[in-house]
Structure formats: C-alpha cells, structure tokens
Design a protein around this nucleic acid. Sequence first.
RNA 1: GCGGAAGUGGUGAAAUGGCAAACACACUAGCCUUAGGAGCUAGCGCCGAAAGGCUUAGGGGUUCAAGUCCCCUCUUCCGCACCA
Length: 833
Amino acid sequence: MADEKELRYDPAVIEPKWQARWAADPGMYAAEPHSSGKPKYYVLEMLPYPSGQLHMGHVRNYSIGDALARHMWMRGYNVMHPMGWDAFGLPAENAALKNNTPPREWTLANIAAMKRQFQRLGMGFDWATEVTTCFPDYYRWNQWFFLRMYEKGLAYRKKSKVNWCPDCATVLANEQVIDGRCWRHEDTIIEQRDLVQWFLRITAYAQELLDDLDKLEGWPEKVRTMQRNWIGRSEGTEVEFTVENRAEKIRVFTTRVDTIFGATSVQLAPEHPLVIAMSAEDAGLREQVAKLLEEQKKAREAGDIGTIEKHGIPTGKFAINPYSSELVPIWVANYVLIDYGTGAIMSVPGHDERDFEFAKKYAIPIRRVIGSADPNAEEPELPFVSEDGVLVNSGEFNGLGCHEAQKKLQKVAKAKGFGEATITFRLKDWGVSRQRYWGTPIPIIHCEKDGIVPVPDDQLPVLLPENIEITQQGGSPLSKVSDFVNVTCPKCKGPAKRETDTMDTFVDSSWYFYRYTDAKNDSAPFDSKTAQYWFPIDQYIGGVEHAILHLIYSRFWTKMMRDLGLITNGEPVERLFTQGMVLKDGAKMSKNRGNVVSPDEMVARFGADAARMYSLFAAPPDRDLDWQEDGVAGVSRFLGRVFRIVTRYAPAARAGAAAKAENPQGVALKLLRKLHQTTAKITQDFEGRWHFNTCVAAIMELVNEIQGADAQLAAGEVPPAVMHELLQTVVLLVAPFAPFLAAELWEELGGDGAVLRQPWPKSDPGLAKEDEIEIPVQINGKLVSLVRVPAGSDAKVIEASALAEEKVKARTAGKTVAKVIVVPGRAVNLVVK
RNA sequence: GCGGAAGUGGUGAAAUGGCAAACACACUAGCCUUAGGAGCUAGCGCCGAAAGGCUUAGGGGUUCAAGUCCCCUCUUCCGCACCA
C-alpha cells in the first residue's frame, strides 16, 4: 500500500476548475459542418420550461442524454447536442401577478439560473445554438408557419365549444383536458364555452399520423399504442334517418350497420341541434334536457363521468329506419357524445352492451339480428357483440356474415342516397388560440371591410408588447393594449384591429429541434439542406408524459413542413426513449408532500459527478427511480476510490505511456482481461440495452479488482505499460458518466487533449477471453457441483470432467445416468434414475 | 371495464432458458487515525450446530433445465375510459 500522503477526492475543487476551463472553450460541444466526413448523430433531450430550478427529473433526463452524447463523441460521430428553453407560458404571467415582475424579466432570470445549474452539472450542450422560444427571432417563425398554414387552409377560425379553464382563464386543447380537469390545475373543472377560435387542421394528417406509427420501430410500443388510441380511427357507416312529421334528418354513425335491423330507438346527445330545436318548442323537454346536462356537469366535477348511470328522455317523436321503414322512438341520452361521430346513434340493444343496459332500464325492445353461424348451435345470449355470426331478422340480408352485410348495406345506402361508408377519428383539430399574454401573437388583422387579413411576411414578427398590465380576468390581456390592437389594414389601409389571442405553447415545442440546426437564421426558420443533414433526430429522450401532446404535435408539424417543401423527412424522431420518473420515498416529488430533493443541494454535498452517476446507477433508465441520499453518498465514495487509485499509480502509468505491453502475465493479465471485458460490456450497452446501472456496476467491479490487487501494484508486479492502459481506459470508461472526474484524472495521467476527443476504448476479444471457465453440473436440474475446463472445450471434454467430479461420482454411484445434456460453455445436466 | 408494464433479500437492484441475489445501500464485527459525510478487512436471502434443505407474489404447465416461456389467480403502478 502506498504510504505517502494522498490527495483527497474533492469535487468542490475539481468540478469548478473544469467548469471554468470548459466555459473558456465554448466550441468544445459544437457540432461540426456536414463536410466533416464523420457520421452525424443528433441526440436531444426535451427542452425544459424555465421554472427557475432544475429538478431531479431533469438531472436524470439530461444525465442520460449527456452520457450518450459523450459516448458518441468518443465514438467519432459528429454529434449535435443542443439545449433551449420552452419559455412562453402561463406561469410567467402568474409570477408577474404575484411578484409584480414582468414575464419577460422573470423568464430570463430563470433561464440564467437554470443555465448556471446546467453548467455546474457539466452538461455538454452547445450553447451557441441555444433556442429561447419567447424571443422574437424564434416566435416570428411560429407566425410565419401560421401564415403558411392559413394559406393552405390548415389554419382556420371557427366558433366552437371550447374547453375553458377558469383558473388559467383561457382555452385548452382537448389534449390538455384530463378527466374533465385542467392538466395544470388538477382540481379545476373545465367548462364548455362558445368562442371563436383558431384551429390547426391536424386531422388532415390523421391517417398518415396513424400509418406512420408502424414505421417508428425505435419508439416504445407504449407510446405508439397511446397515439393510436388517441387518433382513434374507426371505420363505419353514416346512415340518415328521417324524422316523422319534421323536416330535420338525423345522421347516425355506426361501426355495426349490419345490426341496423335491430335498432329499436335513436339516441341523441343532449347538445344535438335537433334536441335544441325540439326543446325550443317544448318547455317540458327543455327542462328535462337541462337537468340531464346539469347531472353531467356534476358527474364531471365528481370525476366519475364515464361511469354515471345511463339516463334518457323520450322525445315522443319517431325516426324512420331507411332500410326497414320501421318507426323507432327518438330519445335524448346522456351517454351519447356530441363531439364524436355525428352526436347521434342508432341504439341496438341486442348487440351493444351500452344500448342493452339502456334498453333494460327503459323497457325498450331488445331484438336479435345476429345469430350463430352454425345452425345447429344454440343462439348466443344477448347482448351478443361479436361480429362472428350471421344476420337474422334482417329482411333480404338474412344469412349474410357480418362483414359481408356491412359492405352490402353500405352499397345500398350509397345507391339510395341515405348514407355511406365513413371513417371517423377521435382526433380533433388542434385549437391553438389562448386568451393569454405570454405567448406568440397570432399574426392576423381583423378589418371591418376586408375581414380576416394575414399580416404580410415583411411585417413579421408581430412583436409582443412589453410593459403591459397583466390581469387574470376578462379575456386576453393584449386586447387592452390599444397601441397593439389598433392598426391599419394591410389591404385597405383603413382602421383595423389585431387578433389579440396568442398561440398555445405547444406550437413552440413542435419544431424547436429544427431551429437548433440553424439557430441564427434570420431569413428562414432554418436552412433546408442543414436540416436534411441532421434529421431525423437519432435519439430523443424525455418523459412519457409527453407521449401524446408534444409528440403528436411534433409529428404533425414535421409532416406539414415537409408538405411546404422545407424538409424531406416525414417523421422528426428515429428513436425515442422515455425515462422513468424520479421518486422520493416511493412518491412523486412535490412541494405538497415536502419530499423535494434539490439538485443544487446534491451538487453541493456530493458533487455533480456523484449526482449524475447516481441517477444512472440507481435503476435502469426506463424505470422509476427512488432517490436515496445514502445511495448518492455511496457513488461519491466510489468516485473517491477511482480518484485515489488513479492518482496513486499515475506516476507508474505515465512512465508506461510510451511502452507497449508485451505478453502480460499473472495479475497484469488478470486485470487486463477484466478491463477488456468491462469495455465490451459498456460498449454493447450503449449500442442497445441502455442499462447504464449495470455499466456503472461493471466499472465498480473493475475498480474493485484493481484495488484488490493494490499490494501487487505497489510491488511493481504490473508493468508500466499495462498500468498506463489500465488507468487510462478506466478514465475513458467513466467519462460519459462522470465527466469532471474523468477530465481531472485524464490530465493527471498525462493524457493529450480533451477526454471528449479521445477514441472510445476498443475491447480486444482475445484479451477479454478467459482461458479457463467454470461450468455448473446439475443432476436432474439441481446444481451439484462446478467443474473447471479450458475455455472452448467441446461437449465430450466437459462431459468427461463432469462425470469424473467427486460429488457427481458420489451421487451417481449405483444409479443409471440415462442422459447427459451438455451445453458447451454453459452447463451440464445429468438425468439420473 | 379495456390496454400496457411490473411483482426477486431489510433497501435500490442484477441475471442471451443454464451457478438466483452481481453492483451498491443499510446493518454487524474487527482494524486504522491526518476524527473524515473518511479508509481498510470480513460477514450479511431463509431454516439448520453442521451436513444439507428451501427460496424469485400464489397456483398449474412446457422443458434435461424456468425469475426468464405458456395458462389461471392476486397485488401495484401507468394509460384509455360511455368513441357508437
């Protein structure tokens, strides 16, 4: 054991030292031009909202991405690893109200604070391409895209029922409503209001968004399934029922037109136009419908919308089934949704669970129209919802299979003009208007004479005015800024008013990753050739909470930009990784629970390397991670061991820098073998599995083994050349996970240049291979013994040594070995009777 | 209700169908003393004095061999939830 006074591992000294050096070399994380000849690799983590503080979820997210980026740099790729700020949004306005600080000021101060945290953590971002979405040089392109979409009919205005959050005092997209509540205010019930809103026609891409999910093989199946469900494609038929003694018609949407002869009523959503019309004439009906709506509202407040009891009101009117001419009663029902399909259904209680439940309750006739395909079989019990059967009680269609019948019925409907095959999506157009201040102004002018007039491109950006008064009531804050509102119409030069709504902030994050590739461009959102070089993103890393919102909008935006001719790729992201949450005491960290762990505190106590490495070590990246401070302390102790062992033998290693390790023996061979095995394991993991927790464990094993040989190292039993390879490689393997320590030790070992520019170590399979291995010997599947055989021994050799083994002999004595199964290199199993 | 993921020591966890519990945390015992959130050595699934036996939520199955594959049940978490 070396007895001279040793240096102590002190991250509080090492880390700021390297942070300062890296800050002085801003180009070190910059991507190279396309002409570099290296293969490109775009690694991206989701950009944070500048709340003012990084949290542990961020530390984990960016530790994963940074490890990957560093590894890819060392593998010789041209890496792009950018960072930016999702800087628009409501919290800035709330803060403004609370602290009397302008949103811009508050946001920029938060960005500065979080950028310091990123730098203190040693994250390798190229700050030269930093994107801040609240800056005019960014959001002008939101406006530019909006105008392009307006020209193509992809941005349009309509009056509609919208989701209104009373706490946000603004409209929410469908995607932002969770169980009837606001995604930011769990306790706030969303109200329905009628407002004129801007929409983006994402439904124009519904089919493609769905189809292309199949191509996204690098995405978690879970996310693809969630998106598929969200898009909710449904093939069916629309059928028009005429109403007895009225001019209106009722269109119903059904996926089971084959059951239409079993329709015994027609059900309308309470908000259906015909219900409104009939209510206007019938005070009794009006009252009951109002009650129904009130019930729904209450259920929504109680959070059990979806499970409330089915409830209906007979209107006393009848609809005519166009196939059978049968008269069926028209009801208003609380389980029919106005915003799906046509807001009206035919009710087939014999073959639909919900209709069955409803019919039972109100004694509506239940009729079998699908029977068993096998004439000898007993008829299945109702409700029978399977499509595996044949039509009965269906006139001329009797005997047809369900699918066949559907096609035939559709043909008839089409021919007679009362219906057709249709495809319905659950996905709705994206409402982007927000009655808030801190967002991208929608570049539209309303002129009394010319109507809606787009702001001409050369007048972009429409700047968000500063020094305005933020209030929480009464519509958009911008509507009170007369300098902003009152303009001249670009067409007629007459007086006109600006649109005062701003855009949903998900617009900002839908294309920010393209801007990174050309962040300073002031004549286009980005250069197409440059984007073509970098896209698609090779690896995107973020939380699964964005599986629907951000990731579906981004896919839409990419397709839209492709159709504008800006890019050639149809999907933005090749591989997606969704990391698990960071928990504390088994629960999500939150101020309410008082279980928030601050990254700053962790860094102050244990250092950035320890915090980062722990976040990778404590669990596989895709699983939830319970933050345990003792665990961070453990990783910190491990880093201390690495520091000590490397500094202790750095002089020996430096002495071996020029030499070559010839034919190593004994402990030197043993350590080299472990080294090359570890290198292979970690390299492999970066390529596929991403189990960084076991990578860190493997490095720990390696370091433990080196330390276990301390006496032999001190005695000089390992040649300097081997010491050199050993210690340098340990440092390089650690580098993606603990960049500060790696930099310090690399310098200590006399290494040339930045660690980031070193080639990633290569594992020599010959060196990594053991020359002798242990093979378990089982008798009837139970482990009995182990035998040592030369590596690569064939089955005969292994069998012979297994049978010769003492314990095996003892147990097989007097018995018959019926069978011997040898899996070379793996196991031997004797079947003994 | 539907869909998905998961269930392994006191804890976080590991294990291409082939030695269950690697690596760490906590704990126990000992050593060291520049008394540090330090370092070193050893032990640490359960039963048992030992030999040995048992053990991956529970039950069944496939297999020479199952934590791993199949079926059923239970539990937890996540997503969707009257989508016609």
